[in-house]
Computed example of a mutant assay.
Amino acid sequence: MSTQLPGFIIAGLYKDSLVLVEETTEQIIPAKKQVQNTNKSPNHEVTPPPQPKKWFLGDNKKNITILLKDPDAVHINDEWLGTLSKLLAACKLNLADVAIVNLKENHSFADIKQQLQPQYVLMFDVSANDLSLPFSIPNYQLQQYGGCAFMTAPAVTLSADKTTEAIKTEKRNLWEKLKVIFNV
């Protein structure tokens, strides 16, 4: 059975394709170039361009960047995330306010600054040298640079372990500095 569709139906089916043709007096030559709209889905709705892969955890609503190195986690391991969530809550913040970046992959400070626009950068077992910054700072000291306030701390402060006096002291030092930074 052979069915021929009316011209307006065929035109409707191919309305998102443009075929350029050159006409001569003797014949129609096929198009040299075919242009298609690639931003439309088959049902002709405009689809947004693909988003780049998100390389940090959180929504960065308050431009606070937390840098760490955890080779076994995508962003941060569960133990550290639990401790960090409690610290953030005590500072009247949450994960939506921050961007957690795992530096197991190389991210330059220029990339971090351009994409996240941090006001505060909290670094856990990350040195200024790891970011190719022109300074070094001791743990729990605030350093201003490039419109950001930087602070470093050992990653043990994110552990759930509170068994030794040394770990308790580190956690206390971190909390004291966070209270100053976030006016808690």
Score class of each variant (00 low, 15 high):
81 L>G: 08
71 P>C: 06
8 F>G: 02
182 F>E: 03
4 Q>I: 14
180 V>H: 12
113 K>W: 05
99 A>Q: 01
169 T>Q: 13
145 Y>I: 04
104 K>Q: 15
120 Y>Q: 07
65 T>Q: 11
110 A>G: 09
124 F>I: 02
147 G>D: 01
79 E>C: 08
75 H>Q: 12
70 D>R: 04
142 L>A: 11
132 S>V: 03
82 G>C: 07
12 G>I: 00
61 K>I: 10
28 I>H: 08
172 R>M: 15
61 K>P: 06
34 Q>F: 10
101 V>R: 01
101 V>Y: 04
136 S>I: 13
140 Y>I: 06
113 K>F: 06
35 V>K: 06
56 F>D: 05
64 I>G: 10
87 L>W: 05
118 P>Y: 07
134 P>V: 07
63 N>C: 07
184 V>L: 15
41 S>M: 05
171 K>M: 04
82 G>A: 10
31 A>E: 15
25 T>G: 12
118 P>I: 07
9 I>T: 13
52 P>V: 05
109 F>D: 00
158 L>D: 01
80 W>S: 10
158 L>G: 02
65 T>L: 11
9 I>V: 15
41 S>T: 13
39 N>E: 13
72 D>A: 14
19 V>D: 09
3 T>Y: 14
89 A>F: 09
130 D>F: 01
168 K>Q: 08
74 V>S: 09
183 N>Q: 14
124 F>E: 01
102 N>A: 07
164 T>A: 07
160 A>H: 13
17 S>C: 13
153 A>K: 02
93 L>T: 05
166 A>T: 09
94 N>D: 15
15 K>Y: 02
161 D>K: 09
132 S>I: 01
168 K>E: 05
41 S>V: 04
94 N>K: 09
83 T>G: 02
178 L>N: 01
181 I>W: 04
153 A>W: 06
39 N>K: 11
175 W>C: 08
133 L>R: 03
163 T>F: 12
24 T>R: 09
183 N>G: 09
62 K>W: 05
158 L>P: 00
161 D>P: 01
33 K>N: 11
72 D>S: 14
148 C>G: 01
93 L>W: 05
116 L>V: 08
36 Q>C: 10
14 Y>A: 09
33 K>C: 07
164 T>C: 06
113 K>G: 05
100 I>K: 01
156 V>I: 15
141 Q>K: 10
9 I>Q: 11
182 F>S: 06
157 T>E: 00
179 K>G: 11
128 A>K: 00
100 I>P: 02
111 D>P: 03
119 Q>Y: 09
167 I>S: 00
141 Q>T: 08
55 W>A: 03
35 V>F: 12
27 Q>C: 14
66 I>S: 03
16 D>L: 03
33 K>E: 13
20 L>N: 14
20 L>P: 06
170 E>K: 02
162 K>W: 10
164 T>R: 07
86 K>R: 13
55 W>M: 06
140 Y>D: 00
165 E>T: 03
132 S>R: 06
5 L>R: 08
158 L>C: 03
84 L>W: 02
65 T>K: 08
123 M>A: 13
143 Q>K: 15
78 D>I: 12
83 T>N: 03
167 I>M: 00
33 K>I: 09
164 T>W: 03
3 T>W: 10
57 L>R: 04
24 T>Q: 10
81 L>Y: 03
31 A>N: 13
